[in-house]
Design a protein around this nucleic acid. Structure first.
Length: 220
DNA sequence: CTCCAGGTAG
DNA sequence: CTACCCGGAG
């Protein structure tokens, strides 16, 4: 499925416009956020609502402000701390592994994307986030949220799993290919959470509806 | 009840 | 490729 360039530009413009007015604010989006904080936020955000993480994040950073401090925690201690966020056993075990790996690496996180993806807890999504936020390179935060927005507007994927769908992979990359890649990414996630909701999207107040496939189907 | 800024074992 | 993790918010 070939998507027209003009449609992508329309989408980018509208999302950026919407984001300026309605974008959400989170601790890990602050300019002052350290690389450690950025990486930890992505770990906590896995399969967990951003608002939930926003409540929890400051407490976690206060308790474990650095890789060094995190490396001193036991696996059980991390699991206990992570309980309010859900997925705490898995996440605790994996975060422990990541912290220990960082200890061995003397606190140095890998630089190249491929190496990042080899780290514990760092999958495709997190490697993209790393590229976007730390290497400052356009890269899509393609989660269920972004996938839903893109599919409704541009057309549905073929494969069940986002992570193996070449159509969504390529489309998302094109969409965030822009000098303001970070803002477009955040814009899409916020837009997906606040307007293009999973259950009942607010199509009446959506500034994308004139070119949206999902909306077009609705009005038939 | 469903859904959530995914990773990974099998 | 799927199935599973999990508490919490809506």
């Amino acid at each position: 499925m070939e998507v027209k360039k003009e449609k992508i530009e329309f989408f980018q413009d509208k999302i950026l416009e919407w984001y300026e007015e309605n974008g959400r604010h989170f601790p890990w989006r602050n300019k002052s956020a350290t690389n450690y904080e950025k990486i930890i936020s992505e770990v906590l955000l896995q399969r967990t609502r951003a608002e939930t993480v926003a409540n929890f994040f400051p407490k976690f950073i206060k308790k474990y402000p650095s890789w060094k401090k995190l490396g001193e925690a036991t696996k059980e201690e991390l699991q206990e701390t992570l309980k309010p966020t859900g997925l705490y056993k898995q996440r605790g075990t994996r975060l422990y592994k990541l912290a220990q790996e960082m200890k061995e690496r003397k606190g140095r996180f890998p630089v190249k994307r491929d190496r990042v993806e080899e780290m514990p807890m760092m999958g495709q999504y997190n490697a993209n986030a790393y590229e976007l936020f730390i290497l400052k390179k356009p890269s899509p935060l393609l989660d269920v949220n972004m996938a839903r927005v893109l599919e409704r507007f541009f057309g549905e994927r073929k494969l069940a799993d986002i992570r193996y769908d070449p159509y969504l992979q390529e489309l998302s990359q094109e969409v965030v290919e822009n000098p303001q890649s970070k803002e477009i990414n955040w814009g899409i996630l916020d837009f997906g959470s606040l307007v293009c909701e999973a259950k009942s999207p607010l199509c009446e107040k959506c500034l994308l509806s004139e070119q949206c496939i999902y909306f077009d189907k609705l009005s038939k």
